[in-house]
Write a protein that binds this DNA or RNA. Structure first.
Lengths: 334, 334
DNA sequence: CATTGACTTGCAATCGATTGCTAATACGGT
DNA sequence: ACCGTATTAGCAATCGATTGCAAGTCAATG
């Protein structure tokens, strides 16, 4: 019975008005008589009718949705279920929902340069938030020069064209490393993939911290992000070293925790033999045992900034990049 | 220059054919002359043109997207960033991407009964996967009676109308509890919110395990899911008990790990004083120290089943519910 | 040479809303 | 009684594709 009403035309017929009037009444325009409007509203309610968002979108050119896209280098083996991404996506979902936008989640393997153009042309969303630029910064820059509603999470590099929101990775790297130095470490290993943007910036920060100190050695141990592989990377690295490091600065909490496990299997204690500092301050950093010292990125604040900037850009405004301050959190592994 | 081509009409004009032909050529129909087709394809490529998915969707009534919706009882304080959800969503993203579907993520606070109808009527997606039914089973049942493409993750109850995919929570609860009994526990606490469906089933399983044993006590300690609040719930529970439990069966890994922390603050050791078993076997269960004994739900397999069933339903087929077997994973906390 | 049929292509309707413009009605003022 | 203005409602175009149907071309067949 109530199943008959599928379009505004059906409802219009039922109400004895035109589709235009129904459309306006449901959109709450004051152009229609308040009595008529009320009557139509009631009728719609009664028949549980809601106009198709799709048709509206086609006409109004507003999509009411934001694409959240995660480019995953397959060779890097990072997953969408990476806890950092997932935490950020969770915050983004909250933030977008609050502003009445849907979230379209895309996982992309960037094996062609046009992965982003494809998504844009599909024309399903009002704008994009790119999470984890990895090595796709050139692609973002190219697109950003004539596509405004695009914001990326991640590192900022001088001269970039696209808008990014992130923490100061250089500073974070420096803080972490300085802290290890202060704790007496003299042989510090950096665990992370310096091919990717953010880890490379953190490594730069680490280098800056030991500059002008010739009694300290910094070892760079390329490590994958995904936990499945980082373990063996780390093991390999430790086997290859004559002397094990006495301090580890990991590019993520995940790597740090994996490292701690590997160290344990090799009979090295944390923080006794080796001090470890992670990066991100995910939930797991608090719950691990011992609780992990790490560099906090305020993910919720990041999500808010990402969405704020994007909304401005959708409105046609040009926004600059945002760089938040990371914070060193000292717990029990250092 | 290449920026001129926005619609198939533009491209049609450029190619000197009709829009219909362009549409068919780009869709790869063999109805058009292969030379013409090839020429149009080349032209589209050159101008980096791709037809609007939106318009196509309106016409074809296929959306090319699946809604993944997470109903979160606000009073229960569970977040979208709950690691279990996020892991499942990650797997779903992979699974859907593989089949060429976009994923629309919605976080819903079910304060009205029509949250699902609203989403359905918005007409943006081909079907829905509901993650975490919590207490919304009646809503799902009502909808499922005349809306086919809907599948839910979670517990199965006799007589339900909607299609669900999940593990056997009753069995999982029984396994965990039996294991604690085998380890010598005599006073077992269940930590979880029995208002929600899945925890309640796990509790039933726990009860079944101690049935016919009158030397074992089962204490039920209602606990929120979110880590922010479960800590104080647990603390409260322990303070209220005259004798602390010697075994804890937690409804999630998150709760289990929180419990272990709380126990530590009260000077109780795990597994010495208290043995703990979690639920889910998330990544964190392996990395925690000591590694957590838990009941594994095979999330990746679950995601595959969810998507499989949904695809069948979209095709008009009716599918039954799927119940996977959970598996007890014994690590170091029990 | 007329007819048939296989291939191609284009016309125009359609999906379900929104909205600029026009028209009808009502109301107040002179 | 007449005119100007404010309300309210409807017509029809539009967003950008897809597709049923009709029509055109051209070679093969009887």
């Amino acid at each position: 019975m109530a199943g008959k009403i599928r379009t505004i035309y059906d409802l219009a017929e039922l109400a004895g008005v035109s589709a235009a009037t129904v459309s306006r009444a449901l959109a709450g325009k004051n152009m229609v008589n308040s009595k008529t409007s009320e009557r139509i509203r009631k009728l719609a309610e009664k028949h549980d009718f809601r106009p198709s968002a799709l048709a509206r979108n086609l006409r109004t050119k507003q999509r009411g949705a934001i694409g959240v896209v995660v480019p995953l280098g397959h060779d890097r083996g990072q997953h969408l279920s990476d806890p950092f991404f997932m935490t950020l996506i969770g915050s983004l979902a909250d933030e977008l929902a609050e502003r009445g936008f849907e979230l379209m989640l895309s996982r992309v393997i960037p094996n062609q340069d046009n992965w982003l153009s494809k998504l844009i042309d599909a024309d399903r969303v009002d704008g994009f938030i790119v999470v984890g630029q990895s090595d796709q910064s050139p692609v973002l820059d190219r697109i950003a020069s004539d596509y405004l509603p695009l914001v990326a999470w991640g590192g900022f590099v001088q001269g970039q064209i696209h808008c990014s929101v992130g923490t100061d990775n250089f500073l974070g790297g420096r803080l972490a490393t300085q802290h290890l130095i202060d704790r007496g470490c003299r042989r510090i290993a950096f665990l992370g993939n310096p091919q990717a943007l953010e880890p490379s910036l953190r490594l730069e920060g680490a280098k800056a911290a030991i500059r002008a100190r010739d009694d300290i050695e910094l070892v760079d141990a390329p490590t994958h992000f995904a936990s499945e592989v980082s373990g063996s990377d780390i093991n390999q690295f430790l086997s290859d070293s004559d002397v094990p490091p006495d301090g580890i600065f990991a590019a993520s909490d995940l790597i740090a925790l994996t490292a701690i496990q590997v160290l344990a299997t090799r009979g090295l204690s944390v923080p006794g033999d080796v001090k470890v500092v992670g990066y991100d301050d995910l939930y797991m950093a608090q719950t691990s045992a011992p609780p992990l010292s790490t560099v906090r990125q305020n993910i919720a604040a990041g999500a808010t900034h990402l969405v704020d900037s994007l909304m401005k850009r959708i409105a046609g405004e040009i926004t600059g990049s945002v760089i938040l301050n990371p914070e060193l959190i000292v717990r029990k592994t250092s």
